[in-house]
Amino acid sequence: MKLQHQFIALKKISFLLIFFFTCGIFAQETYENSISFSKSDSNLEWGPCPHFMPEGCYIAVLHGNPAEKNADIFFKVPANSFIPAHTHNSAERMVLISGELVVTYEGEQSQTLKEGTYAYGPAGKPHSAKCGDSPCVLFIAFEEPIDVMPVEED
């Protein structure tokens, strides 16, 4: 009987060791470093916007892969730029980092975003925007892969 208790205790210890070892391996595989960026960070790699966006428009990927879910970007446009009507297959969560941006979603009143303003845009809903008298930088978190499609005006 004593041998049976020792065997059961050894089995429990072995299971716990395997469990903790496995958790440790998985934790190491999914571990990632924290990051932090400002709009003027010299480490940002700014790329051009799609062709229908205003001249001087740039995008910088902050986190994630734009071709996959959950990517974050900075979107930058010069002062007095008009961003034509467009849609995304993803909802977007936004915070205006600098400038003032008037955003208009189809069928809704325009909203004026000021520095620090949070906004949410539903997937597939056409919208346009106008940047004010100073350059605008917008943080955007996409839930789905990043895309942008122009809306043809009637």
Results as ranks from 00 to 15, higher is better:
136 C>F: 02
96 L>W: 05
16 L>F: 14
62 L>N: 09
4 Q>W: 07
4 Q>K: 10
95 V>Q: 09
138 L>P: 09
148 V>M: 14
154 D>H: 14
42 S>L: 05
74 F>G: 07
89 N>K: 09
129 A>P: 08
151 V>A: 03
15 F>N: 11
49 C>R: 01
150 P>E: 04
125 K>V: 15
127 H>N: 06
118 Y>H: 11
26 F>W: 12
49 C>L: 06
56 G>N: 09
43 N>Y: 10
52 F>T: 02
115 E>Y: 08
39 K>D: 15
146 I>F: 07
61 V>S: 01
146 I>E: 03
39 K>R: 12
19 F>V: 07
79 A>V: 05
151 V>I: 13
60 A>L: 06
71 A>F: 02
77 V>Q: 03
2 K>D: 15
133 D>H: 12
95 V>I: 15
105 Y>A: 15
19 F>S: 13
59 I>D: 09
9 A>Q: 09
23 C>P: 01
35 I>H: 10
65 N>G: 03
20 F>M: 07
100 E>K: 13
110 S>T: 06
73 I>E: 14
66 P>S: 02
2 K>F: 13
68 E>F: 04
92 E>W: 00
116 G>Q: 06
14 S>L: 14
97 I>M: 10
10 L>P: 04
46 W>C: 01
21 F>P: 02
11 K>F: 06
8 I>H: 08
53 M>W: 14
21 F>I: 09
139 F>A: 04
48 P>W: 01
10 L>D: 07
3 L>M: 09
17 L>F: 15
1 M>E: 10
126 P>L: 01
70 N>R: 06
143 E>P: 00
97 I>F: 01
20 F>R: 00
41 D>R: 11
122 P>E: 13
137 V>I: 15
107 G>Y: 08
129 A>G: 11
50 P>K: 05
129 A>M: 02
102 V>D: 10
84 P>L: 00
53 M>A: 14
10 L>G: 07
45 E>I: 15
42 S>G: 03
26 F>T: 15
136 C>K: 00
119 A>I: 03
121 G>E: 15
75 F>A: 05
114 K>H: 05
68 E>Y: 08
121 G>D: 06
44 L>F: 06
4 Q>F: 08
137 V>N: 01
45 E>D: 10
137 V>S: 01
130 K>E: 13
81 S>E: 03
92 E>A: 04
138 L>T: 00
131 C>T: 04
46 W>Y: 04
51 H>N: 14
132 G>P: 11
130 K>H: 11
2 K>N: 14
15 F>K: 13
118 Y>M: 06
137 V>H: 00
72 D>N: 08
152 E>N: 11
139 F>V: 02
110 S>M: 02
30 T>D: 08
88 H>K: 03
120 Y>N: 09
110 S>H: 01
75 F>Y: 14
95 V>Y: 12
34 S>I: 10
106 E>A: 13
121 G>K: 09
10 L>E: 05
119 A>L: 05
